[in-house]
Design a protein around this nucleic acid. Structure first.
Lengths: 215, 215
DNA sequence: TCGCATCCTGACCGTATGGTCAATACGAAG
DNA sequence: CTTCGTATTGACCATACGGTCAGGATGCGA
């Protein structure tokens, strides 16, 4: 679908803005194309068409396809990390994990392409973000495990293995983005409505919070 | 990693076997390469090297890359459907869903490549298996939803939305295959041991079965 | 108005890849 | 041994893709 969209990009005179504006345009297009075609299946030409720019212009802002891809993945990782803060400052699992589920479901709805790119990157062995996994993600994970352990010690939830609980949170919430197409197909071909998203989020919260004995 | 493995394939004289044998060899290699590189990133040459056959030979058995890919995806879908039978003939959710989780976790461990290929296929909009989603999968899903509804009516579990329960089952179990690399990284870089797989399976069963009020 | 840095882009290039083909080897049946 | 269908393979081809580049447009500051 080479839909050459966004033709109406406004060129505010400001010289500095142009760079930022075009990079945004390219990154958005790239995220979508990488998500739908994978890194290998994506072509610079397709991304260029979708961004409404000539291909050579992409290479002006992003020297190589890898550079562009790296930026897309990093963007996602940052969004993903922001949701992590939902976990903090919570009195117990009901608030903390509940808020985290809500935040991650929201990301799945608002950034489905990003989620898919991230998933594909990990599935391919994380060639680009291995270091993030080993540093930022590992640290974050250890921190949350400690929090969950504390909640368990305080009797606020059942003695569940915190690691597998985290995996379940990631898996369940991201599934609504990564497997969105399958879910739509099983939903008579229609995207989930506001109401259905709310129901999905509630179902996930219900099952998990009850499952860990926090309700 | 062009490791030209499986050099020691035995040529049992039987003429008919050769086809089956080589197709198996090629399909196994293809599954791995497609999983690790994606459809676009996979090359017939890489698959050929991994299968220990000349590239032209692949095209003798599978005319095009798409044909080969289609076969790989279909193989996975069949394995995936087999696990579905765990659901049947169960007296209640503890047996039915418990067995289903065990079966799917087992598949995630034994067929991680296949699971990834399936995930990528769905993420890309299911260009190859859309019809399966709309027929076989939809039918299977409706059937299980009916079963779950019955269990709810019989008071064997809480009134959970069956659809979202199924999504959670798929998401959670397949996560251990699709995001296996991430899980390994968070496991000090080591693959999960037998014991850890058992703990993972038990954790998932615990949380979900308790979460739906079946315990 | 001029100079200069930034931005833009059509045309081009080398390479990698999917796929073809013609020639050959193989082995079972007669 | 001959025949014939199946299997094998190196060499080859057309195409598509990532990336380059030289020349030009643009607009800001002096």
């Amino acid at each position: 679908m080479p839909e050459s969209a966004h033709v109406s990009r406004i060129r505010s005179g400001r010289r500095t803005d142009i760079r930022q504006q075009n990079e945004r345009l390219i990154l958005d297009a790239a995220e979508k194309v990488f998500a739908e075609a994978g890194f290998g299946g994506a072509t610079m030409q397709l991304i260029a068409d979708m961004a409404g720019l000539p291909k050579a212009n992409l290479h002006y802002y992003f020297p190589t396809k890898e550079d562009l891809y790296r930026r897309v993945v990093q963007n996602i990782f940052e969004i993903w990390l922001d949701a992590a803060s939902s976990f903090d400052g919570a009195a117990g699992p009901v608030e903390g994990i509940g808020a985290y589920i809500e935040a991650k479901m929201d990301i799945s709805r608002r950034h489905p392409h990003g989620s898919k790119v991230w998933a594909a990157e990990v599935m391919h062995g994380a060639p680009v973000i291995q270091d993030y996994l080993e540093t930022t993600l590992r640290d974050w994970t250890e921190g949350r495990i400690a929090v969950i352990r504390r909640w368990i010690d305080e009797g606020k939830m059942a003695p569940i293995d915190p690691r597998h609980l985290l995996y379940m949170l990631w898996a369940t919430t991201q599934h609504y983005a990564d497997f969105g197409h399958q879910i739509e197909t099983l939903n008579a071909g229609a995207a989930l409505s506001d109401r259905q998203w709310r129901e999905a989020t509630e179902s996930v919260k219900q099952i998990i919070l009850r499952g860990i004995g926090a309700l």
